[in-house]
Design a protein around this nucleic acid. Structure first.
Lengths: 222, 222
DNA sequence: CGGCACGCAATGCAGCCGCAATGTCTGTCG
DNA sequence: CGACAGACATTGCGGCTGCATTGCGTGCCG
């Protein structure tokens, strides 16, 4: 686990870093909003711990940026401003949790864990099923790190199946995704693509089931 | 928004219900773990507020059940036990947030909002009966997490039975749902589907009763 | 021109489902 | 109380539909 700590007081930062390190959390430290923005761009962090009183503004003002950059990134506000009004402000500005200083390190860690265990890969653009990983933005599939080159139609079919992994996808929905609206296909060529996909996915821990009369369904192999 | 409040102190419960109602939150109140379990099965709630000291045990013991029943359902623990150790215990038992009494209603509401805006609870339009879970939007049945693949007609029959779980469904209503309006069936094939369904549902804690002359009824096994 | 993608058709196959035969139960009536 | 009738349960069979797979031919691209 690697987190970004946005905090200007050095003592606080070093103490927190030490405490978190003892629990195998890697901490990157940013002293200002500006540095934090920069650090966040790397996209390597699993969560953000955010102080409010910073040299260049209120920590809360960073949240919209974080949400735009990395929707779903857990954000916990750490602040000496601990009144209910402050807490509400923090949460309603988009933070996932708000912890008033002083706090116990154990509680911080527990809240980190709580916030991290929510359904991770939503808002994130890669989906894992079995040993298959599918990057939705780059439209790239890989099996156990090995990139899997697929022809266009098969890729499109796999994409929609993966997007709705574990749920049945109707045949028409698949056809729409694979062929688009323009050219309608009057044969079983979709079945052919599925067939080839299956072969290429054998051994990836992923199965494509046919639900007779309803469509197809992709899921992790039993 | 509709939430389940698990709390045994009547004063606390009524005060909370009143406060939440003013913000358009519908509150269902359960006084014990047992009642809470039952209420949760309906699957209508968007979040759970959980007290710890309950007549029949620690509220935390309900969390595994909730997670099994409705993964991703937001859970906020409300407790007079407010030490860091207690908080850590609550969070590490699977709660999404932990709020020590006394707390401000505004903060509770803010935390509710925070916890609810997390990856839009995947359209969980799902009904639980016994160990059977039926996802109405995806038309997918599963028993204790294990997906249950059903052929079309059986699935349609199960769907309408589940939608009206605990109430009898007339034979004609079933036929309409299963066969549609077009082709009328002149035999007992519906009975056959029910029969096969029953076999596949054996051990799922669900029974399909025949109400002689009236129709069928699905409910949790005794 | 060689390779790849893909539409298409042919063939094979599995399983769903309608159907009917037979069994079981319940309520009613003589 | 016994017998019958009607309703539901269960099971096997078979046809037919819909999916799987493969091979071929065409067109696109390098």
């Amino acid at each position: 686990m690697r987190i970004l700590l946005v905090e200007d007081e050095i003592d606080m930062a070093t103490a927190l870093t030490a405490a978190l390190s003892r629990h195998d959390v890697v901490v990157d430290h940013a002293r200002t909003l500006e540095i934090a923005e920069e650090a966040c761009r790397s996209g390597v962090h699993d969560a953000v711990l955010l102080d409010r009183k910073l040299p260049d503004g209120d920590g809360l003002s960073l949240i919209p940026f974080l949400r735009r950059e990395r929707a779903g990134l857990p954000i916990i506000v750490l602040s000496a401003l601990g009144s209910p009004e402050h807490r509400v402000a923090g949460l309603d500005n988009g933070a996932d949790d708000y912890l008033a200083k002083p706090f116990s390190t154990d509680e911080l860690l527990a809240r980190l864990r709580a916030v991290m265990r929510r359904p991770a890969q939503i808002g994130q653009n890669t989906v894992n099923v079995g040993h298959l990983r599918f990057n939705l933005t780059e439209r790239q599939a890989e099996v156990e790190g090995e990139p899997l080159d697929l022809p266009r139609r098969e890729l499109l079919a796999l994409e929609i199946l993966v997007r709705r992994a574990g749920r049945t996808v109707s045949r028409t929905a698949l056809e729409e995704a694979v062929y688009g609206y323009d050219d309608e296909i009057a044969s079983n060529s979709l079945d052919a693509h599925i067939s080839r996909l299956r072969r290429k996915l054998s051994g990836s821990g992923v199965e494509i089931h046919a639900i007779r009369g309803l469509g197809y369904l992709l899921r992790a192999a039993a």
